[in-house]
C-alpha cells in the first residue's frame, strides 16, 4: 500500500494529536483495517510517536490490525441474547461461514465476531450485519441472511 493513498485522507484532519482517533476511523473505513504504512503515516501526521498510535489502535475494538471481511457479522452474546440461545446462532454462523468466531472467511467476504451487548435486549437474540440490526433471530434465519448478502 503506497503511502500516497493516505495523503488525501490525512489532509482532511488537522495535524494534531486530537485527530488521531478520527483519522484511524477513516483509515479503518477505507481499508477495513489499519495497514502498517498507514499507522506510520498517521503518527508522522499527528506528530506523535508510533507507539502512541499503536496503543490507541490496539485499545479500541473498532480498529483492527488484520484485514476484516467485506461484511462484519456480529452475534450478540449479552445476557438477554444468551438466554434466548445466542450460542446456537454463533454455532450456525461458524458452520455456514466455515470460520471460527473472530476470524475472517477464506474468501474475505465475512468477518465473524461476538459482541457483549448492543443495548437492544428487547430484540434478543440479535445478529448485526455491518450496521444492520436483525432482532428475534433464529438459527434458520442465518442462511437467509448470508444468502441475501451474496
Amino acid at each position: 500500500m503506497p503511502s500516497t493513498d493516505f495523503a488525501e485522507l490525512l489532509e482532511k484532519h488537522p495535524p494534531v494529536e486530537e485527530s488521531l482517533i478520527e483519522i484511524l476511523h477513516d483509515v479503518q473505513l477505507a481499508h477495513r483495517y489499519l495497514p502498517r504504512p498507514a499507522l506510520v503515516a498517521v503518527a508522522a501526521h499527528c506528530a506523535v510517536p508510533l507507539a502512541r498510535v499503536m496503543s490507541v489502535a490496539t485499545f479500541y475494538k473498532a480498529f483492527s490490525l488484520e484485514p476484516k471481511g467485506e461484511k462484519v457479522l456480529k452475534v450478540c452474546m449479552g445476557t438477554a441474547c444468551h438466554v434466548k440461545g445466542a450460542s446456537q446462532l454463533l454455532d450456525e454462523a461458524e458452520r455456514l461461514l466455515g470460520c471460527k468466531c473472530g476470524e475472517t472467511t477464506a474468501d474475505g467476504r465475512y468477518t465473524l465476531e461476538e459482541v457483549n451487548c448492543v443495548g437492544a435486549c428487547a430484540m434478543a437474540p440479535l445478529v448485526i450485519e455491518d450496521e444492520q440490526y436483525h432482532g428475534k433471530f433464529k438459527p434458520v434465519d442465518m442462511k437467509l441472511l448470508l444468502k441475501a448478502g451474496e
Binding site: R36, L39, V48, P49, A51, R52, M54, T58, F59
Partner: peptide
Amino acid sequence: QNLVTGAISRIDRGVGKRVATPF
C-alpha cells in the same frame, strides 16, 4: 513518552494488555 522519545506503549486491553514497542 513524557521524558524521552515514546518508543514503548501499552498494547491491547484487558487481560492481554502489555507494554511493548510497536509490532
